[in-house]
């Protein structure tokens, strides 16, 4: 029984409720750090660690934390884990710390982490919560790596710093790939993400037809606030949603 639950949570995080491409959560770090596949995987894995640990702890404490102060309590837990990850990374993987440096503190306010704490870990037992965190984290990691790899490939002809496309050399007249630098800049993040989301919409339709629908998007990008975990407390809801309510 519990085995099935674990597998289901992992599949849920990676595919059915993939945080980036399906739920549309955590867009800011997604767009900011995915300039290369290495950065994507680094950010994804550090978020996974924080997400798994925070889901575990919040699930343990779910009956102790009073409902009215749950948000500050969640933030304290998440922020502590983030700071620990930061210290450890700085000490043991300085090169990764160097490239992710300023984005690590951003994990604290990553809506995936708070969203999972609020909508899953605070209502479910420890084991499913932990694996929910792990699944969600891996889903996030895969998404960021794919996004990073595509941007790196188009922007510099490399994947994981390994030259995939031979570069053109004007001096020697050698034919080859001319990197499109815009893809490693901010606009490139939006371009690549929009194409991936378009592809995901095709997948979504196919899954709907098969009778195995993907989850509805949750982030603010969709303008649809009903599915959002923060819908009750949010003050910036779209007008259509408010009218319905």
């Amino acid at each position: 029984m519990s085995d099935m639950r674990i597998g289901e949570r992992l599949k849920n995080g990676i595919l059915i409720e993939n945080p980036t491409f399906v739920l549309m959560l955590g867009m800011c770090p997604t767009l900011a750090v995915t300039t290369s596949a290495t950065n994507g995987i680094g950010m994804g894995l550090s978020t996974t660690v924080v997400l798994t640990l925070s889901n575990l702890l919040i699930s343990i404490l779910r009956n102790i934390i009073p409902d009215r102060v749950r948000m500050p309590a969640f933030i304290v837990v998440v922020a502590s884990f983030v700071t620990m990850v930061q210290f450890l990374m700085q000490g043991y993987v300085p090169s990764l710390y160097e490239s992710l440096g300023i984005y690590i503190p951003l994990i604290v306010v990553n809506c995936i982490i708070l969203g999972r704490a609020e909508s899953f870990a605070s209502k479910n037992p420890v084991i499913p919560s932990t694996f929910d965190g792990l699944g969600m984290g891996l889903g996030f990691t895969i998404s960021l790596t794919v996004l990073g790899a595509l941007r790196e490939l188009l922007g510099s002809g490399q994947i994981f710093k390994y030259q995939i496309l031979p570069l053109a050399d004007a001096a020697t007249g050698k034919a080859g790939y001319t990197p499109i630098s815009i893809f490693v800049l901010a606009p490139g993040a939006f371009l690549v993400l929009s194409v991936i989301v378009a592809v995901m919409n095709v997948v979504r339709k196919k899954m709907d037809a098969k009778g195995k629908p993907l989850a509805a998007p949750q982030g603010c990008l969709t303008g649809e606030c009903e599915g959002c975990a923060f819908s009750n407390a949010c003050t910036g809801k779209s007008q259509t949603t408010e009218a319905k309510a």
């Binding site: 404490l61 009073p66 009215r68 102060v69 304290v76 837990v77 922020a79 700071t83």
Partner: peptide, 17 residues
């Protein structure tokens, strides 16, 4: 009670950090 629980969580987090 709310304040106490939050204080304890913060204290433990601070110690761990």
């Amino acid at each position: 009670k709310d304040a106490l629980v939050l204080t304890v969580i913060t204290l433990v987090a601070g110690l761990a950090l």
